[in-house]
Write a protein that binds this DNA or RNA. Sequence first.
RNA 1: GGUCGCGUGGCCGAGUGGUUAGGCAUAGGUCUGCAAAACCUGCUACAGCAGUUCGAACCUGCUCGCGACCU
Length: 300
Amino acid sequence: MNKKILIIICGPTAVGKTDVSIAVAKHLGAEIISFDSRQFFVETNIGTAKPDAEQLAAVKHHFINSHHVWEHFSAGEFADACLALLNASENKQQQFVMVGGSGLYIDALVNGMDDLPGKDEPIRQQLDQLYDEKGIGALQEKLKAFDEKYYNTVDLNNKQRLMRALEVIQLSGKPYSSFLGNSQHAFNFIPVYIALDLNRDELYKRINNRVDTMMQGGLKEECIRLMEYKTCNALKTVGYKEMFEHIEGKYSLDEAVTLIKQHTRNYAKRQLTWFRKNKNFKWFNPDDLNAIISHVDSNP
RNA sequence: GGUCGCGUGGCCGAGUGGUUAGGCAUAGGUCUGCAAAACCUGCUACAGCAGUUCGAACCUGCUCGCGACCU
């Protein structure tokens, strides 16, 4: 059986991934698999700049509108679901265009996650309480006691990291570090890595413009509709977070918009940091579609 | 013309003789089930000139700029 080809397209937010992915998919007759961690959700449309109905109709998309904001869908779960889709025997499709901005999700799929236990809400609540009462030092001490190896390498100020490690330790009774690096993940696909970028000024201009477009498109109204879900993880994100705070009277609409633009720019920079680290990617200007297509065609 | 006040890094903002305030932005980075998240690092400024002092963003004088008030 021939190996399936995965054209993996990443890039910072607003760089123009959607258009490129659709053009490439059409060119190949491929389907699109999105790995955008905020476009999975049915309820988030305007604030995530999800492909519109026309674009979704042009090429078959997977993992767009596949979940609800109140559901939990992690990088690991995504990787599992994605692998299941790609390996499905009834799936005759040989080429897929994967597109998104979440670096961790791509790594989870391509490199695999170690066989760690999933999340456990009661344990998280318990650790949260410990943190609230005794501060981050308590989490650090606890980690040092149960997994000194990981303690020596983690960001000790990063509460999320500390808590995840402690969660795994409590769930398994083993050090978190003992799970790491054991992945026997077999990636049976041929990947073609494409990263998109623009010069910083132009990227930031596109970001600012897109936020304005979101506002005109009714971002505030979308947020008003989603107020009851504002504590869901899927909505603890740029665009929604600030708009919720504005609706609650924390600051003006103008201030909210300014902050959304600013935070989106910050996010784009973090994405670029992540992608730059992965040397497999070949970088393109999103407007240079010809070069992208010919790169795709020159690969197996 | 006179009196008074103000002038701190891209922005906000503390500091009134002897540490790099701090925040935001910006730049770089970290990343194994919250990842559009969470976290780390770099960035030494005091309007200008002269003076006092061992030492000045902080005191004195002058100049420039901004603002208020007075005639």
